[in-house]
Structures are given as C-alpha cells and as structure tokens.
Design a protein around this nucleic acid. Structure first.
Length: 495
RNA sequence: GUCUCCUUCGUCUAGUGGUUAGGACACCGGGUUUUCAUCCCGGCAACAGGGGUUCGACUCCCCUAGGAGAUGCCA
C-alpha cells in the first residue's frame, strides 16, 4: 500500500506552529516512505474563512520549503483539493446516509440547542450534548417543519449501544462506548456545507488517504469518524494521533505564551531551518544525541516509531539557540540579504539601500554574526553605527576600580593613539592599546571600556576596532571628545 | 460532570527487565577573549505515588493522584 497523507488546514487564521508541526510530520512521513503528500484546504467554515489566512498558508509552506504532490495550484488525480469546490459531493453523501437511515434532518434552532446545553450544565447532567430531539420525527412532523421554511441540518445517527474502536499507530487501540460519543453530531450544516467530520471522512476516502497523522485533540472524534466510514461501507485509514504542543503552563499553546503564528516567527527573524529543526523535535526524536537536522535529512530519517506520546512544551529559548546556530552557519552574503529589511525598517538604510550602504552592511556582518539569535535584534546591536549615542549615563564611562580622573587620563591617551588608526590591522591596534594599558597600569579591558562607551553609549557592543573603522576617524574622535567632556563634568561634581 | 489520552532533570528527550538513568536547552561556576557573544571545561537537576509480577523493575500489570484534550451548524 502506498503512503498517501495530507495536511488539511482550514484558512481561518494565521498558520499556527502546532499546525505546522502536523504539516511537517505528514510531509516527512510521506517523503521517508516514498509516498505522496497532499494539501487540502478545509474551507467549509464560511463564517471564519479569510483570504488573508489562505495567503498566509501558502506563504508559510513556501517559506518552509514544503511542496505538495497533490493539492491546489498543482492539481492531481483526486481534485479538486479545496473543499468549497466539492460542495455537491458532501451533500450527496449526507443524503446517502439519510436514505440509508444512518442520518436524519434536524430542525432545532441554535437557541434551543443552547438552552439544552445550559440546562444540562445547570442540572449537572451526566449526558451532554444534543438531546436527539429530531432523531425520530415522523414524516408529518418533518413536513410541518419544512413548511415553516426551516432549513435543517443533517445529523449522523450515532448508535446508542455497543462500542467503537480504532487502531492507532502510537496509542494502540482506542475504545469508546457509543453512548459516550457525541450524540448525533451535525454532518451537514444548514447552509449546505459539511462539518469537519463529514468532509474529512469523505475526502480522505475519495482521495485514498492511507494514514491520518493529526494532533491528539482529535482523538475523541476518532470513533465517530470510524462510525462514518462504516456507515458508508468504507475502510478507515490508519490513524496516528500526534502529541500536542503546549505552552509553558501546560495548556494548549496560544498567543498568551508568546508568538504562535509562523508569520510572527518569520518577522522576528527566525530562519525556516531553525523552525523546522526545533519543531521536528517536539514529540519526535532520532536518538540519544543527534539534534541537528535539516529538512532534507528529516525527509529520509523521520519515522513514526520514534514518536513520543506525551505532549511537549514549546521552549522559546531552545528555539533561539537553534536559530543562533543556523544564523552563524549562514554565508555572509546571505545573512546580509536577510538583515537588510530590518535595517531598512529601523530607518538606518534607504529603501533600496545605496551601494555604499550595502558595502557598510557587509562590513557589519562579521561584527554581529555570532551575537544574534534573531535577525530582528540587528538594529539594536548596530544602532550606534547609524545614530550618535549622545545621551548616556556618564558613569558608564568609568571602569570598575577606577575613577573619573583616571578614566579621563585613559581616554585622552586613547585619543592620541587613534590618529590614522584605520591603516592598522586589529592586531596592530591591539598591540598599541596593550602597550598603552601597560604604561597607564590598567588592564586592556579597562582601557577600552571608556572608549567603548564613548563610541557606542553602552558597555556592551560588537568588537570595537571593527566598529571604529566603520565610523571613521572623524566620528570616533568626536565621540571620544564628548566622552572626555562628560568625564570632566563628572570629575568636577565629584570634587 | 462525562469520556479519552498522557506522566524520566525546570524544558525537549534517550532508555523496550540488570545503566554510576545518557544527551541537549535553560541555569550556576570556571577558562579563552577588548565588553557582550561565540568557543571550551565543569556543576546542579528526573524515573508522580502506592500496590503487585519477577531473582531483579524507569521499563510489564493494577489502583490513586496530577495534567491535558474533547464534549459546537469551529476545524
């Protein structure tokens, strides 16, 4: 049996990291098995549907480098792959079940349904859900409702006796008494669109899907789906319910935990390599040591056997760590291209950048490459190169274990040392500063700190000599002079 | 409430009856270094609890507890 799996998102919001994990696992499973990966758009909820969501879906898959063998845009033997274009199909299938006595029209208003639920809650009833009010309506009663012009929904008749089970690759057998299954769920809405339950069963069967890899939040509708397959006289596919992705508090991952949409991650400067690598390790592992995987490797090495059952907590810090690693592996010119938009957005570069500006970024790259965990951090790291940090706490200039007077002496000496510094290499500069430090009887770090603060306005910065070279002697001198000025004032007030 | 699933360091995990319970992130210490970062070295830290089964249980079974998910004309 050839492997055919699908990712079937509904375009009702931005692509979520949990959804992407499901997409990835389906994709890798298909590739590793030499099977087909199918994309299907489940746009049956016309209330929540949005074009923007659909665009985001395509953009996300494109960004991650996931391609599908069948689906929208590429077509395939079992299309169309957009459920709204299969409208008639679901209606036919729903009515087939009605004719077979396995489903029935229901005329209950949503108000009544709400009231039923409210009462159940109030009475702490052991039965929850639809009360099967319309299950056994007589033809006369139906005709009456029809005459009132009520558009019915179609509900599936869930057996009241017996039990239904399915085999899960991960969980083994999952059993459920039929009376515990959602009582007669809607399969066709009053607008004629199918609900998820009907649509996914019909489509998975018609599209010859062999395995269903989906999140564990779907476990409880598994038996219902099996019942639907039975009612149609079809064999269900193989199920595999993937562990869920949680937030730090153990609840389903959501916005309040931080970013959850792939778009957010992209905007913050996470690389697709890092997202793919990290997310693949949520609920799956290869062995006891290896943890770096590129997409191409996962396409070979992924297997259902290494899946974990327990839910995984999404760890933003570990993602950062992965991302930093992948950023450092980028070629300089690629990284340059990647950080460009962030610098433009910060207003540091024109759009598009001038050749001079491009030259400038290329000089910046080596200074910041190993200091990044997200690309969006770039502007803050290099702000001092584009904006003169005039305002900073003068106290920062004074290194530990010394005083303003001594610091002033150091900075003045440094000022004398930097004439034509650009002609010297970092090594030569360092030697000179080292000698000076020795003369002044301070450590190199102490000598450099006032210079660093004068130039960057901060005690933390990229390597100084490189930064100074970018700023040029004139600018550097100007900032040193201001530093000296600050120190003079500081020394005054300290007297 | 009911049903279903889950349970190894704070987090991601390795482990399939006999291990000093391994790795990674985070954290803490140390080293390299012009600060930071990178890099290197070291440390802290786990089998939810209770019963069985067994010569022997993290591994198998049962119970309890805890967590999560579902319970929609959303997927």
């Amino acid at each position: 049996m050839s492997v055919r799996v699908r990712y079937a998102p509904s375009p009702t919001g931005l692509q979520h990291i949990g959804g992407v994990r499901t997409a990835l696992f389906n994709y890798f499973f298909a590739r590793a098995a030499g099977g087909s990966f199918i994309l299907r758009i489940e746009d049956t909820d016309r209330e929540r549907y949005s074009d923007e969501s659909l665009d985001d879906l395509y953009r996300t898959l494109d960004w991650l480098g996931l391609s599908w063998d069948e689906g929208p845009q590429v077509g395939g033997e079992y299309g169309p792959y957009v459920q709204s274009q299969r409208f008639e199909l679901y209606r036919e299938h729903a009515h087939r079940l009605v004719e077979a006595g396995r489903a029935y029209p229901c005329y209950c208003s949503s108000e009544r349904l709400e009231e039923v639920r409210r009462k159940q809650k109030e009475e702490k009833s052991s039965i929850f859900g639809y009360d099967r009010h319309c299950r056994d309506l007589t033809p006369e009663q139906r005709a009456e409702y029809e005459d009132q012009g009520i558009k019915p929904v179609i509900r599936f008749k869930v057996p009241m006796e017996g039990e239904t089970s399915f085999e899960d690759v991960l969980l083994d057998k999952v059993k459920r008494k039929n009376r515990d299954i959602s009582p007669d769920p809607v399969i066709l809405k009053s607008d004629g669109f199918p609900t998820y339950h009907l649509a996914n069963v019909v489509d998975d069967h018609l599209m010859k899907i062999s395995h269903i890899l989906r999140a564990q939040e779907w476990i409880s509708s598994g038996p219902l789906h099996v019942l639907l397959y039975e009612a149609f006289g079809w064999d269900p596919p193989v199920y595999c319910h993937l562990p869920m992705v949680m937030g730090k508090d153990g609840q389903k991952l959501s916005k309040r935990h931080g970013s959850t949409s792939v778009r957010d991650f992209r905007l913050q400067g996470y690389l697709p390599e890092a997202i793919i690598n990290y997310v693949s390790l949520l609920g799956w592992s290869y062995d006891d040591s290896r943890e770096f995987f590129r997409k191409e490797e996962l396409e070979k090495v992924f297997s259902l056997e290494k899946l974990n059952k327990a839910p995984a907590v999404f760890d933003y810090k570990k993602l950062d760590w992965f991302n930093g690693n992948y950023i450092r592996e980028l070629d300089d010119d690629v990284l340059q291209k990647q950080i460009r938009p962030y610098l433009i957005e910060a207003g540091f570069l024109s759009d598009p950048p001038t050749p001079e500006q491009e030259e400038l970024i290329s000089e910046i790259i080596p200074l910041i490459k190993e200091r990044l965990s997200r690309l969006a951090e770039v502007p803050e790291l290099v702000r001092f190169l584009f904006q003169d940090p005039a305002e900073y706490d003068a106290q920062l200039l004074v290194p530990k274990k010394t005083d303003p007077a001594k610091t002033m002496e150091m900075l003045r000496a440094v000022r004398g040392l930097i004439q034509n510094f650009s002609e010297n290499s970092d090594e030569e500069l360092e030697d000179e500063f080292r000698n000076l430090a020795e003369q002044l009887e301070v450590k190199l770090g102490q000598l450099l700190m006032p210079l660093r603060v004068s130039i960057t306005g901060s005690k933390v910065s990229p390597p100084l000599f490189g930064a100074m070279r970018i700023l040029g002697e004139q600018e550097v001198t100007k900032r040193i002079d201001r530093g000296i000025g600050y120190l003079e004032r500081l020394a005054e007030t300290n007297k």
